[in-house]
């Protein structure tokens, strides 16, 4: 049973990490706790569902549609809401509240258009075959999510480390002003970050929507709360933190179900979070990795 639970923890952890990727990218570069990320995640899933049921796209097509649609949405949010706030140097609470408003708009617009009831992707979109090894059951989709989380994480880290663009982004994360003085196109990179982060949110929306078999207007809400926990655990704004924090939260939740009792699951997870903050204010792995992004 423990082996199965560890596999459960790995896949749940990767689900959280997948969501937290875009969330943490925005925080790392823009310094904004983007509370509309849950809604952007949801919109991406709905866009993909529409594309699949009307155009009959396969899974990869759905992922591209979700990435593009959410990405553009993220860009629009940046242009209309975050950029003006940056321009007047608003304290970091202000953009957070603006993104709450954006989240309300998106959630209720989707509910107005598609209704509040659950919908789902057509079943043939992804194989729900179970693979059993030594009494451990794991589905193809779970394996896909685990693989993709690690791959996206590796890709992002590589891009940040090795490319010109990545170096520029890291400079911005350190100090946007200094980066600007170095001749880096700070605004342009902010747009790019908003686009990519939202796009990643859209991809997460499709995969998590497939995983739980349900799309609904409020699907981003509980993910957002978990996402906040993940980025704190992992050290805020640290890209590797998204994966480590996700895995840690997944493990904490699964083990507390297995050994403490499922009704205390979230109390254990959030209690741990509270304690960790008190003992290590920069997050569990924050000091391990001094560099942001």
């Amino acid at each position: 049973m423990l082996a199965q639970q560890l596999v459960n923890a790995l896949s749940l952890g990767c689900v959280y990490a997948l969501f937290a990727l875009g969330f943490t990218l925005i925080f790392g570069v823009l310094g904004v706790i983007n509370l509309s990320h849950g809604a952007v995640f949801m919109v991406g899933a709905y866009a993909a569902e529409q594309a699949v049921s009307h155009l009959g796209l396969p899974l990869w097509g759905a992922l591209i549609v979700a990435f593009a649609f959410s990405g553009v949405l993220g860009l629009v949010i940046d242009l209309l809401v975050l950029r003006p706030l940056r321009a007047r140097n608003a304290p970091h609470l202000i953009p957070m509240i603006a993104t709450i408003g954006v989240g309300i708009i998106l959630t209720n617009a989707i509910q107005g258009i598609f209704g509040a009831q659950n919908i789902r992707f057509p079943e043939q979109l992804v194989s729900n075959r179970t693979i059993s090894v030594e009494g451990i059951d794991v589905t193809a989709l779970e394996l896909g999510i685990i693989l993709l989380s690690f791959m996206l994480m590796a890709l992002l880290l590589l891009a940040l480390k090795k490319t010109q663009l990545g170096r520029a982004l890291r400079a911005i994360a350190e100090s946007p002003r200094a980066a600007y003085l170095l001749g880096i196109n700070v605004e342009g990179l902010f747009y790019l970050t908003s686009f990519v982060a939202a796009g990643l949110g859209g991809i997460a929306g499709v995969l998590i929507g497939l995983y739980s078999n349900a799309l609904f207007p409020l699907m981003g809400k509980s993910m957002l709360e978990k996402g906040i926990a993940v980025i704190i655990l992992g050290g805020m704004g640290d890209m590797r933190g998204a994966l480590i924090g996700g895995l840690f939260l997944g493990l904490a939740e699964v083990l507390s179900v297995a050994y403490v009792g499922s009704s205390m699951r979230d109390a254990v997870a959030f209690g741990l979070l509270f304690l960790i903050l008190l003992i290590r204010p920069r997050g569990l792995f924050g000091t391990l990795m001094e560099r942001k992004v």
Binding site: I97, A98, I100, G101, V102, I104, I105, T107, N108
Partner: peptide
Amino acid sequence: FRLVFNGLILV
């Protein structure tokens, strides 16, 4: 669509 406007006014 009333909550949409609620959010809009907030923004």
